[in-house]
Nucleic acid binder design. Structure first.
Length: 354
DNA sequence: AATCCGTGGCC
DNA sequence: TGGCCAAGGAT
């Protein structure tokens, strides 16, 4: 067997998958076709997100919204709330928009070809191919980070990402068989997730160990090569923990676009580079007029492209204040779509302000 | 094309 | 501890 025999490689991979494939909540056993709704939902959740993180969210979603029609009629904020903590919140907005389109214009049936799927919000090249192969059993070239890594190693592609993407996709297309499209796609991704892992790949038990050129050359651990990432700056902000006489605190909704778009937050100054805020600057950004007292410590959080250091101040709002936001009782905070960084802020405030 | 967009686990 | 990484998409 050689790398010039793609069908033999596909067969050996599928044999491995039949023997070692993982049981996942969105996967059906044997030849049973999975629900396209489940495939789509899981694939969107799995974008840049681990199986371990996705699993409880997936189970909650399909329990609460058993069909895409039910998801489509849910209030957007319910979807955002259910998504809170999973990250990349534009996915949740696109997910809901997509559900509405499929439910209203297509009778709840997903299109079964890549081109049409690709037009749905939140569905890109990868997700369209994955749904086509997994949900509809049609051949599609499914390329995610796992596939790129596996191809780079199998064919010893040393060109760094992202420049190598086109070459890696062509290699993936060369290997993709006509048989069992869904199983094959999931098998390559499973291989990348469990054996051909980013660190310490388990080459000794890999079904492709004898064909892998990266391993033959002893460079598999260095692949895929990647361009160095730019340094992450640190941004600074001050969050206003605003309490009313009855104990309720002030939260507000972030703008629909951009970072944490549409999610709820503890009001804060802008998050700016380099320079921490001075107490004298608080009045210019406060959500309501108050005397602010600094709380000890700070909340650190790392986003994709910057670190955040958030200090907290606490203040009492006057009885007739009319802030831009929403008063929420402390024990009702979890009813709202608070992203993880804001959960950290709330915990810090509860520990330091009382 | 390059940037922006979350989070938690891992070593 | 901090950087790296994950079943990417939108602009």
């Amino acid at each position: 067997m050689s790398v010039c025999d793609p069908s033999a490689l596909a067969r050996s991979l599928l044999a491995w998958y039949d023997r070692a494939g993982r049981a996942l909540p969105w996967r059906k056993k044997g030849n049973e076709r999975p629900d396209p709704y489940h495939v789509w939902l899981s694939e969107v959740m799995l974008q840049q997100t681990t199986v371990a993180a996705v699993t409880p969210y997936f189970l909650r979603f399909i329990e609460r919204w058993p069909t895409i029609a039910q998801l489509a009629t849910a209030p957007t904020d319910d979807v955002m709330h259910a998504w809170a903590g999973l990250g990349y919140y534009a996915r949740a907005r696109n997910l809901h928009a997509c559900a509405k389109m499929v439910a209203q214009w297509r009778g709840g049936q997903f299109p079964d070809d890549e081109e049409a799927l690709r037009k749905l919000p939140g569905v890109g090249d990868y997700t369209a191919a994955a749904i086509t192969a997994i949900a509809f059993g049609k051949r599609a070239v499914v390329v995610d980070g796992n596939v790129e890594r596996v191809m780079a190693r199998l064919f010893a592609v040393t060109e760094p990402l992202p420049a190598a993407k086109g070459r890696l996709k062509a290699l993936a297309a060369h290997l993709t068989p006509d048989m069992r499209p869904g199983d094959y796609a999931q098998a390559v991704m499973d291989l990348g997730a469990t054996i051909c892992s980013p660190r310490n790949p388990a080459c000794g038990i890999c079904p492709w160990m004898n064909e892998c050129q990266g391993r033959r050359q002893g460079i598999e651990a260095q692949l895929p090569a990647k361009l160095a990432k730019p340094e992450r700056p640190t941004r600074h902000g001050i969050a206003y923990w605003t309490a009313r006489k009855d104990g309720a605190v002030l939260i507000r909704r972030r703008p629909p676009q951009g970072l944490l778009g549409g999610m709820m937050e503890i009001p804060s100054t802008p998050w700016r580079d380099d320079t921490p805020w001075d107490m004298a600057e608080l009045a210019a950004h406060q959500p309501v007029a108050a005397q602010w007292r600094p709380l000890p410590g700070l909340v650190r959080h790392t986003f994709t492209h910057f670190h955040l250091e958030l200090r907290l101040v606490a203040g009492k709002a006057s009885a007739n204040a009319t802030p831009l936001g929403l008063w929420v009782a402390l024990d009702k905070l979890s009813d709202h779509a608070l992203p993880s960084v804001m959960v950290k802020v709330v915990k810090h405030a509860l520990a330091k302000a009382y």
